[in-house]
Simulated assay, not measured.
Amino acid sequence: MNAFISQTFTMHQIINLKQVILFTGISRATIYTMMDPKSKYYDKTFPKQVQLTIGRVGWSAFEIHQWIESKLNSRVVVESVGA
């Protein structure tokens, strides 16, 4: 018998920096600048890293997706004038 019948299962994926760069279109340097609270380009909404091992970090793919969605939702819609 399958124990997962009528249950919802969400798998969270951890992605590496190259994937974050690919998904966001933002360079490595800019990502780390946005994560630095001392930087004038600091973005407190940018997802935090997940420490995987001593020398390895990753990001939640879901959180990166949410961040991209928030940027898309915050766009100003410009109406055409004189149409």
Results as ranks from 00 to 15, higher is better:
residue 83 A to N: 14
residue 73 N to Q: 15
residue 70 S to T: 11
residue 15 I to W: 01
residue 72 L to V: 07
residue 37 P to A: 09
residue 70 S to R: 15
residue 5 I to S: 08
residue 31 I to Q: 02
residue 45 T to R: 07
residue 12 H to T: 10
residue 55 G to F: 02
residue 52 L to G: 05
residue 51 Q to T: 08
residue 83 A to Q: 13
residue 47 P to Q: 08
residue 25 G to L: 13
residue 22 L to P: 00
residue 81 V to M: 06
residue 62 F to L: 14
residue 58 G to R: 02
residue 12 H to M: 08
residue 59 W to D: 00
residue 73 N to P: 04
residue 53 T to Q: 11
residue 2 N to A: 07
residue 11 M to Y: 11
residue 13 Q to G: 00
residue 69 E to Y: 07
residue 64 I to H: 05
residue 47 P to I: 02
residue 51 Q to W: 01
residue 46 F to V: 03
residue 58 G to F: 01
residue 56 R to V: 02
residue 35 M to L: 15
residue 57 V to C: 10
residue 50 V to W: 01
residue 77 V to G: 07
residue 65 H to N: 14
residue 79 E to H: 13
residue 40 K to C: 06
residue 56 R to F: 02
residue 2 N to E: 08
residue 66 Q to I: 08
residue 11 M to T: 13
residue 59 W to A: 00
residue 24 T to W: 06
residue 67 W to T: 01
residue 50 V to P: 00
residue 31 I to N: 02
residue 79 E to M: 09
residue 56 R to L: 04
residue 55 G to Y: 02
residue 75 R to I: 10
residue 53 T to F: 10
residue 65 H to E: 13
residue 8 T to I: 08
residue 74 S to H: 06
residue 51 Q to G: 03
residue 67 W to Y: 09
residue 62 F to G: 02
residue 76 V to L: 10
residue 14 I to W: 03
residue 3 A to L: 14
residue 8 T to Y: 09
residue 54 I to E: 15
residue 34 M to K: 15
residue 2 N to L: 08
residue 79 E to Y: 12
residue 52 L to F: 06
residue 23 F to L: 14
residue 48 K to C: 06
residue 78 V to N: 09
residue 40 K to E: 08
residue 37 P to C: 06
residue 23 F to E: 07
residue 82 G to E: 05
